[in-house]
Design a binder for these strands. Structure first.
Lengths: 218, 218
DNA sequence: TCATTGACTGTAATTGTATCCAGTATTTTA
DNA sequence: TAAAATACTGGATACAATTACAGTCAATGA
């Protein structure tokens, strides 16, 4: 988890969810400012940016009322008494905090009802992909990448690597000159690995799952 | 009860609830127009006024996205009528023979151990994608496309369409001039639909699964 | 046959909103 | 103790969005 919210930030978040519940749409910056007594809409803007940094909301640039409250816990109501069957599926890893093991429980967003042997080789967990650096390999922002934990990777494979404190998904290339991690998007430069920085292969990509909830793919 | 909604009005209402579910806030007039293929936002405005007259929505004057869907019946979430396909999972459709229904048993390649509600809206079957015409949408040759059967599709959605005897996956675009199916790859030309040829929407894409057996992704 | 309604196109004025910039003060963290 | 983050004021601007007005076209019912 990231930093906890400050009291004021919690008030802003509560106002957003409250407005959503009572009005059916999120508030504007001006409405937040008015409700909480700010004289400037910019105060609201900065609170929203802080909430976004802490991952509790999303902001849609340019869209009026473009605020989405991110739902961390599934909070399922219908299947209240699920008898804790061992079939909890694959863990979905969201934002990975700097410098901690990928599979630490605090990163687990939810579980996906998939058997581990759905992919081959076996998938150990699912990683939510951020950014478009692998766009041309058909891996888009928000996709779930099925990861098989191994350090035994080959040239051309899509690997999950840790460089220093960052986790990244790239195509692997080892030559006499060393290791390079290649993006599949001309907007991104290849990463030349400096082993002294701390470098690890976390695993290899064995599958992709994409599912846009609600409206179909876009 | 007031007058029932016209088909078009129902589509507008569905779009509003759909946007609410997927984005967390209602659409603007311009977004409604874009999604349903109107050239004028005023068409959306007039549909909204009609929906308001019939009591299914409220409009908040002056507020952007100021649309509230009025809830008459609670519409309990208990999913009563499950299609009972839970046991064998989703059918994977391979090569579809010319001029026969997609879901005919002879096309079923195998079954995939996935619950139908893994995707939202519900996936009815998986279609193995041939070719690279949707490459830039992150849909590659051999991917499994999760398909929700419906003929109610909106502009910009990825649809599964039948033209004459061919089944194809494309981005849907309806305007005053007619229907076009757009590839997501500059090497492919848009398809202008000639309704006399026989044209059907089979469904809408709701997810993607890719898993290269054996060697990881390539 | 004419008025009405539904379903639009197109233009445009006005207002709503996001979002930047430049400050100030206080509190937290390194 | 300096740097960073929090919590604002105030102003400005460009774009987003609502919504009125003026039409067109087709179907429907009186």
């Amino acid at each position: 988890m990231t930093k906890p919210l400050t009291r004021r930030q919690q008030e802003v978040l509560d106002l957003i969810t409250g407005t959503l519940a009572s009005h059916g749409y999120p508030p504007t910056r001006a409405e937040i400012a008015q409700a909480l007594g700010f004289r400037s809409a910019n105060a609201a803007e900065e609170h929203l940016k802080a909430l976004k940094r802490k991952g509790v909301i999303e902001m849609i640039p340019g869209a009026s009322r473009g605020i989405r409250v991110v739902n961390h816990e599934p909070a399922n109501s219908a299947t209240a008494s699920e008898p804790a069957t061992e079939t909890q599926g694959l863990a979905v890893i969201g934002q990975v905090a700097a410098g901690s093991p990928v599979l630490a429980t605090e990163h687990i967003d939810h579980y996906c009802p998939l058997p581990a042997d759905f992919f081959s080789p076996r998938a150990d967990y699912l990683l939510r992909v951020k950014g478009l650096s692998m766009r041309d390999a058909g891996i888009l922002d928000g996709d779930l990448l099925a990861v098989h934990r191994t350090s035994d990777v080959r040239n051309g494979q899509i690997v999950i690597a840790r460089i220093g404190e960052d986790v990244t998904v790239k195509r692997f290339e080892r030559s006499a000159k060393g290791i390079r991690l290649l993006a599949e998007n001309p907007d991104f430069e290849p990463i030349i690995v400096d082993p002294s920085e701390g470098f690890d292969i976390e695993g290899v990509g064995v599958g992709i799952i994409r599912g846009d909830n609600g409206q179909g793919l876009h």
